[in-house]
Amino acid sequence: MSDAWIVVIVVGLVTIAIKALGPMLLGGKALPPRVTVVVALLAPALLAALVAVNTLGGDHELVVDARLPGVLAAGVAIKLRAPVLVVVVLAALVTATVRVVTQ
């Protein structure tokens, strides 16, 4: 079997298992109240981390590049209560424009 197929099969099986773990073991059962309070904060903590890493993350370094103005423009659009479609398209547009201009 080729390297690619080994990676595809192993990563696929492990990912399916990781995703299934919580819902298969705990599905439908209410978590203890203290755990619920903690889990409720997982969304803001993880989403903020995803914003930060997807905006500034490089290969083992933090980089300021064309993504930052795009995401800042998105922030302004969110503040102005623009629809999500406008927010996402604006971010891509600003980033693509900055890339063209600075190249």
Binding site: L47, L50, N54, T55, G70, V87, V88, V89, T95
Partner: peptide
């Protein structure tokens, strides 16, 4: 500029 679309959505 697709790479900026994802952090924008997460934001």
């Amino acid at each position: 500029g697709l790479d900026a679309a994802f952090p924008a959505l997460f934001l």
